[in-house]
């Protein structure tokens, strides 16, 4: 259910991007799903509003690829929560995908704004 008012960036388009954002967020330290969702929203100045539910399949996929690992921990407000952290493979992936992203953005920009 895309939110009205904010620029509607469709979930499907975010498929690969969401993975990258999660990895980036986790590069700062272990976090649980709730934290990750808010971190992405906040850091993108609320442009990239993640539907919280869609975060979890993405997390599952990343964990499946062994880029992140999970463990149960206690949240700031004393709730049991599942925490995720970046694995070494995930770190490598983050660097590679960030570079790739930059390339794409440059390429798209060259097309959209020819010098």
């Amino acid at each position: 259910m895309p939110k009205r008012g904010t620029p509607p960036i469709h979930g499907d388009m975010l498929q690969g991007t969401l993975d990258l954002l999660i990895l980036r967020t986790l590069a700062l330290g272990p976090a649980h799903g709730h934290t990750i969702a808010y971190a992405i929203e906040r850091q993108s100045d609320d442009v990239l509003a993640v539907e919280h539910g869609s975060l979890y399949p993405a997390l599952h996929r990343l964990e499946d690829r062994k880029w992140i690992a999970s463990f149960w921990g206690t949240s700031e407000n004393n709730r049991k929560a599942r925490y995720y952290r970046l694995t070494p493979a995930g770190k490598k992936q983050l660097t590679e995908q960030t570079n790739r992203w930059d390339e794409i953005v440059r390429a798209v920009n060259r097309i959209l704004r020819p010098a």
């Binding site: 649980h32 799903g33 709730h34 919280h52 539910g53 979890y56 599952h60 949240s75 929560a81 599942r82």
Partner: peptide, 12 residues
């Protein structure tokens, strides 16, 4: 997963 989502809900 159900527990994890429940936890998410509780925190929110």
């Amino acid at each position: 997963r159900a527990r994890e989502l429940e936890a998410h809900l509780a925190i929110e």
